[in-house]
Simulated assay, not measured.
Amino acid sequence: MTVMTRTASAHASAATADEGGSWLTTLADWTVSLMDTIGPAGAAIAVGMDNLFPPIPSEVVLPMAGLAASRGSFTLAEAILWTTFGSVAGAFILYLLGRWLGADRLRRIADRMPLVTGDDVVRSVHWFEKHGSIAVFFGRMVPLFRSLISIPAGVARMHWWKFGLLTTAGSLIWNSIFVMAGFLLGENWHIVEQYAEIFQTIVIIVVAVLVVWFIVSRVRELRRGRSSGPGTAPERSGSA
């Protein structure tokens, strides 16, 4: 184990004791060990996993790549390029999943689910066809959405080269910010962790509010439909 790993592990252990065993600190310690073992490719793997498993926050993984670069394990440019490669690779896996699912298959699945209809899928695809470029680019800079946005891009069959360019551009900006933060902060990378947790919590709360709003709105629509159904039936039979 190199000096960089020992220092980072010791710092992570101290942070764990102070914070009551934060799972983010454990993740950061594992990320540093991975990068120390296989170099910048380890950063690509960690960031790729962040795309496939949204609960793994890139806001913690990326600063660790910057920390490793500051310790001389690899250069800052390598940290940024490899993490961006990992982001794009992970995004394309989900993009291909979306293309495999397709709009027709998703519509059939939606028709079998409560509170969701195939028309919701159609409207979502139409919206994505109009605003997909903006959604993919800026979606790469929002926790949770940075992973999920790849699936509707595949469902809407966005051109692979367009998806790749937008994903690369958005990921490059996002990754550069956090890798640079880890590079400049060094062993004080945990400062980024604190703000990352706040940012991710805000996004989760916003998503939860939107989900609740959707459920309440859909339940109200269903109730209005049921209450109006019996009332309209007699009028149709009478007019006949």
Rank of each mutant, 00 (worst) to 15 (best):
Y95E: 07
V203Y: 04
L34V: 04
R105Q: 15
F163Y: 08
V47K: 00
F53A: 07
F214T: 01
I149T: 05
T25L: 15
I204D: 02
G186N: 03
M1T: 10
L76N: 00
S171M: 01
G20R: 14
A91R: 00
P114M: 05
I198C: 01
W161K: 14
R112F: 14
P234C: 07
K162R: 14
L106A: 07
S217C: 15
G182L: 04
V212C: 06
F74M: 15
A46L: 00
M1Q: 06
H126V: 13
H11C: 05
F53Y: 15
V211I: 11
W161L: 14
F92C: 14
I80P: 01
I109H: 09
S9G: 15
E221V: 11
P54M: 07
G238K: 13
T83E: 08
N188R: 13
L222W: 12
A153K: 07
A69S: 06
A77H: 11
E78S: 15
L185P: 05
T201Y: 13
S124N: 03
A15Y: 10
T83F: 00
A110S: 11
H190T: 03
T16N: 10
L52Q: 04
V3M: 11
A69G: 09
P55A: 13
L34R: 00
G72C: 06
S124L: 14
L67K: 00
G238F: 08
A68S: 09
F74Q: 11
I134N: 10
R123D: 08
S73N: 09
I205Y: 10
L172F: 07
Y95L: 07
L97S: 09
M4F: 12
S58G: 03
I205G: 03
P63N: 14
E187C: 09
V122Y: 06
I198Q: 13
R220E: 11
D119S: 03
G21L: 04
G154I: 03
A196E: 10
I202K: 01
G98P: 04
G90Q: 03
S58K: 03
V211P: 08
V219P: 08
G164Q: 11
V219C: 14
R226P: 05
S150L: 03
P63D: 13
I191D: 04
I109V: 11
F145S: 04
I56C: 15
R123Q: 14
S171D: 05
S73E: 14
F178A: 01
G225M: 02
L106E: 01
G102N: 10
F92S: 00
A69D: 00
